[in-house]
Computed example of a mutant assay.
Amino acid sequence: MIEEASKLEAYLPLSFQSTKERDYMRFLWEAFNTNTDHGKFQFAFLAYHMLVMSFVYFNIWQIKLIRRSQFETAMIGFSKDVEKDLLAASSPFVFSTVNERTVLRFLKLIQCDNGKIGTYAKLVDERNDTAHANGNIFFNTEDELAKKLRDVIRVVDEIQRHSEAIILDGYREFLLASRDPEERENVDDADQVVEVLVKQYYMSASDIECCRAFDIGTLQGEPGFPAMQALHSKLAALYPPTDMEEAA
């Protein structure tokens, strides 16, 4: 795998709610690697773009769960049917039914301004250019593809940094909602972290890194603090920092 490409893995979910979703993401990685190995760099880019758009859908899904009222407000202008489908969605991949340029507007809810969203939309345009039968081969070498992937990763990293505040809000809500082992979804701390936080919120390694940095002391005055502290410790135990994080 091209080194630049592998960096995307840190921004993609560690677990999925269904095997179908997991298999789909594996399929895209396999398509990217196979086309790269055979020098079909243009098709490799198409697979990679689909992975990146999936990353965008996962981020918008987190916005939908954590900032529901703002998400609903952002749908002004959508048809009633589309609005109903998005609100009732049980998977981030439902966002694929919306025009990609349009769905990027939801990133305004994490303070991505119009200039940045315009830059992100150019990635969609570039994908469209490579996907059409226009007689052009846009990536003739691995170096050309690697250069484009570096640009893409910079965009992904920027979106992730804009997501940090909402991830922290969601994590705080998770801890507060999970402080009573008898009332929450799972009595076991590990099961609660994995099944409710990581899977339902489609948490990536980068998201988990953000959660580990959460100041648990800010909840010290809340009822059930020991249970929340135990969950926070369990998260750190289940998902310790990677070598790359420690080096940074």
Rank of each mutant, 00 (worst) to 15 (best):
T130D: 10
K234E: 15
F45L: 13
L8W: 02
P13H: 06
V52F: 15
L168I: 07
R105M: 09
I2L: 15
D37Q: 09
G170C: 03
E144R: 07
A146P: 02
E158L: 15
S54F: 04
Y171T: 06
N128F: 03
F16S: 03
L109Y: 00
N186E: 14
E4D: 11
L104T: 11
D129L: 14
C112P: 02
T73S: 02
K64V: 00
P181S: 07
V124A: 06
L8H: 03
L175Q: 11
I167D: 02
N186S: 13
P181A: 05
R101G: 12
D191K: 13
D81P: 00
D188H: 11
K84N: 05
I216K: 10
S233C: 03
T36R: 08
M25F: 12
A5G: 06
F43I: 07
K7C: 07
E142F: 02
N114R: 13
E72N: 02
M203D: 01
F45D: 11
K148G: 10
E144N: 05
Q111H: 12
F45M: 11
M75L: 15
S178T: 02
F41N: 04
R67W: 13
K108T: 14
R179V: 01
D81F: 10
L51W: 10
E4P: 01
Y239N: 05
E9S: 15
L12G: 01
T130K: 07
E182R: 14
Y120H: 01
L176R: 14
M1V: 09
F225G: 10
N134S: 09
A237T: 11
I153D: 04
Y11L: 07
P13N: 07
M1C: 03
A205F: 04
T130W: 00
Q200R: 15
D243I: 02
V198P: 05
N136Y: 10
S233Q: 15
E30S: 09
E72I: 00
S204G: 05
D157Y: 07
S96W: 06
V52D: 04
A131R: 03
S178R: 04
G77N: 03
F138E: 12
L107R: 05
S206C: 00
L109A: 06
L109W: 04
K80R: 08
C211P: 08
E195A: 06
L46V: 13
V52R: 09
T73V: 13
F41M: 09
F55M: 01
G77Y: 12
S204A: 03
R26Q: 10
N99V: 00
D180I: 06
F214Q: 07
L231D: 02
V198N: 04
I166E: 01
T218N: 08
T119E: 14
D215A: 12
F32P: 01
P13W: 11
V82S: 07
E72W: 02
E30Q: 12
V52Y: 08
L238Q: 11
L28N: 04
Y11E: 05
F45N: 11
M1K: 08
Y48A: 07
R184C: 06
Y11Q: 00
M53I: 00
E100R: 11
M244N: 08
V82M: 10
E182V: 10
I76L: 07
L8P: 04
K84M: 09
A248R: 15
A190D: 15
A47L: 11
G217K: 13
I76Q: 13
E4H: 09
F95Q: 00
A236H: 08
W29D: 07
E158G: 09
S15H: 14
V193P: 01
K84T: 11
A121Y: 01
L12T: 03
T19W: 15
K116W: 13
